[in-house]
Design a protein around this nucleic acid. Sequence first.
DNA 1: CCGATATTCAACCTTTCGGTTGACGATTGC
DNA 2: GCAATCGTCAACCGAAAGGTTGAATATCGG
Lengths: 110, 110
Amino acid sequence: METRLDLVFSALADPTRRAILKLLLEDDMAVTDVAEPFEISLAAISKHLGILTRAGLISQEKRGRVKWCKLEPDALREASVWMQAFGQFEEMDLDAFERFLEQELEIGAG
Amino acid sequence: METRLDLVFSALADPTRRAILKLLLEDDMAVTDVAEPFEISLAAISKHLGILTRAGLISQEKRGRVKWCKLEPDALREASVWMQAFGQFEEMDLDAFERFLEQELEIGAG
DNA sequence: CCGATATTCAACCTTTCGGTTGACGATTGC
DNA sequence: GCAATCGTCAACCGAAAGGTTGAATATCGG
């Protein structure tokens, strides 16, 4: 079973996809415009956008023949909470964090 | 060129590795003890630990024939800052964030 | 010294990833 | 209507990921 966290972290693992997120930070963009600064093919960008969409990091809405891409920061926030908890666990309620982890992780998965 | 962020996010993308981090949250552990709850081979766990180490998420110190694994939350904090910035960009200094991104990302990479 | 324990290495396999190209289905505008 | 534009699909490719097994390398304990 592929969790939301799997999808988000593996989406963020690629520098091209992080660069796409950076572009979308400035404004919503059409697929062709997202692709413009990169040297790879439009089809490759389209795949990257699909991965970002499945991870919930962006959304895509088609208007006419143009598909608009929009940053969706909620998924990022969710994963950020997970990481921040690890990074600052000295300062927080460890028991509450443990309970949170129980829901998110499964020992032996993979 | 593989950045620190690449290494951290792809390390976190695997549920087994996240589960290992959870184990190490409780205490430092030997490789064999880390492997115990999982169904995969010791060699596979050893590889996972190597990936976590290269990402800076854990450190490993050999004492005698036992190699001790220790959580290193700093790398997580670094990536968490990156994500949190995206997730909460409405509330922060966008110009400062842009400058931060200029250092971390390269458009066209990948 | 020798057997047991701890860990990695090397070779291999299968699946996924990131990329390509060319064809295709919609939609637009003249 | 038809050519141009937008984006995806399908088939393919090489490289990397995640796993296995078996042998190798230290180190420990008696």
